[in-house]
């Protein structure tokens, strides 16, 4: 299963090669290589604390790897200056787990924030753009609410509208389904799929919610203990004979995981 055999991955948007990242004593990624194809939804899955969020931060250049390199859209993130990173990030959207809305601004101003920061558009145009984005996530009516008045799912949708405000080339979703009720989970699943297809985005979804993620993902990586343990389309993965991947995908209570990881994951939980 070498990646270059797959024609979709040839023209990958994000290429990760030999990535090693340590946080203190702990190795989070150990010589990881993977590709994120263009125009597709790629899921990065794995148990909590396996460094899924860290991967997104590395792609966004917020963290620097100890060794290895990342290439995004032909540019090497690891070698970029601060200014170049800023330029790159304008073409990236990221949805944070908590939404990360700016609490002192209302919904409208939150979505308008990237536009106001990076463009000199007239007020009327900003208004039109913001209302368009809010309409896309179904929250045009909530534009005057403050973030504290929103439910978790609504906050995430506003954050999604904000993330697509500058029409990025790629979207990164950090645990978009965690802690959502079934309805808003369904809404988010549909939105991610819709955004990817209608806006021509490339999406990376980091999650451990197997069911929802596999429903929309075109390609899936499964990480564990700093290594890629499984990769392929959702159908490939459901037919895999790798015991670890099978346990994870089928959510079996017993399997290789219980032998190796509860101790480590627990210790890490304590540190959080």
């Amino acid at each position: 299963m070498t990646p270059s055999n797959n024609p979709v991955l040839e023209n990958a948007l994000v290429k990760v090669r030999g990535l090693t990242f340590r946080r203190g004593e702990r190795t989070i990624f150990d010589d990881v290589s993977l590709e994120i194809p263009r125009g597709r939804i790629t899921a990065v899955m794995g148990p909590s604390g396996c460094g899924k969020t860290t991967l997104l931060r590395l792609i966004g250049g917020q963290l620097r790897p100890d060794s290895g390199f990342l290439v995004v859209d032909g540019e090497e993130v690891t070698a970029m200056s601060r200014a170049e990173l800023m330029q790159l990030r304008k073409r990236m959207g990221m949805l944070f787990q908590s939404g990360a809305l700016l609490t002192d601004l209302n919904v409208f101003e939150n979505v308008a924030f990237p536009l106001r920061e990076h463009t000199a558009l007239p007020e009327s145009m900003i208004r039109d753009l913001v209302l368009m984005k809010l309409e896309a996530v179904g929250l045009r009516g909530a534009r005057n609410l403050m973030p504290s008045e929103l439910s978790g799912g609504m906050a995430r949708r506003v954050a999604l509208a904000r993330a697509i405000a500058l029409d990025p080339m790629m979207m990164m979703y950090d645990e978009p389904f965690t802690g959502q009720d079934p309805i808003s989970m369904g809404v988010l699943v549909r939105l991610i799929k819709l955004m990817n297809d209608t806006l021509g985005l490339s999406s990376i979804v980091v999650s451990h919610d197997i069911h929802e993620t596999l429903a929309i993902a075109d390609y899936v990586y499964i990480l564990s203990a700093g290594k890629v343990v499984g990769r392929g389309s959702p159908t490939d993965l459901s037919q895999t004979d790798n015991p670890w991947v099978r346990q994870f995908v089928q959510a079996l209570p017993d399997g290789p995981v219980h032998f190796h990881y509860p101790g480590a994951a627990f210790a890490e939980d304590l540190r959080l």
């Binding site: 944070f96 700016l102 609490t103 990237p114």
Partner: peptide
Amino acid sequence: GLMKATEQLSAMEMMAVDPLHR
């Protein structure tokens, strides 16, 4: 501190806005 804890500063960075300046 709260903006940092709720990832608001991080989100700004990802929106290519420098929180130290903004």
